[in-house]
Amino acid sequence: MPHDPPETESPSHGAHVGHLDDFHTPLTYWQTLEIAVRELLIEKGITTGAEIAAAIDSMDRRSPADGARLIAKAWIDDRFRRKLLADGSAAMTEFGLNPAGLRLLAVENTPGIHNVIVCTLCSCYPRNLLGLPPDWYKERAYRSRLVRTPRVVLAEFGLELPAETTVRVHDSTADMRYIVIPQRPAGTTDMTEDELAGLVTRDSMIGVSRASSPRGFRE
């Protein structure tokens, strides 16, 4: 029944806020392939429509907010901070987050050291903690240049580092996925864990920015 409108749109369609509507626009070649591959996998008993919907929901639920809560916990709880540094995946589990195979390695910024993450060979990213990576993380400019001129690249993100700070670049070449523990901003002594988590941006956990300063705070 070509060209008949679907009787009902799928339950999944519209259930995911924030993605673009592609239901009524002409299919590209690759979208046609997506339909074919998906239907073949279902016909072969490899998956089901419900499993695909569940996988999408699972990914949608992962976001930088999870990483931010983990960092805030490390800022206020030194035992947890040391655990996060020693075994990131175990710390995730203790915190109630499911690593789902993710081998997490946390690296910590200090007054003298700034860490930043890249994957030059593809675009490895701690997606089971932070969700899907931003576009710029996957593109040529970042992947090519960060390992050679990290200070110039960080400046393009608005982060100027003093010469006396050591920059440590981490190239995710194999099994580990990285998260930066940014420095806890000044003026946050009285903040709650939830308030602190609100200062931890995605970019600060990749290492291309600092954590945000609390509203109204001036150095």
Binding site: P2, H24, P26, I35, A36, R38, G49
Partner: peptide, 17 residues
């Protein structure tokens, strides 16, 4: 798939379409 139409709306009746 191509015979069904030209959009996801045409081509996907399944619950994930």
């Amino acid at each position: 798939v191509r015979a069904r139409g030209t959009t996801y709306g045409d081509c996907c009746q399944s619950e994930t379409g």
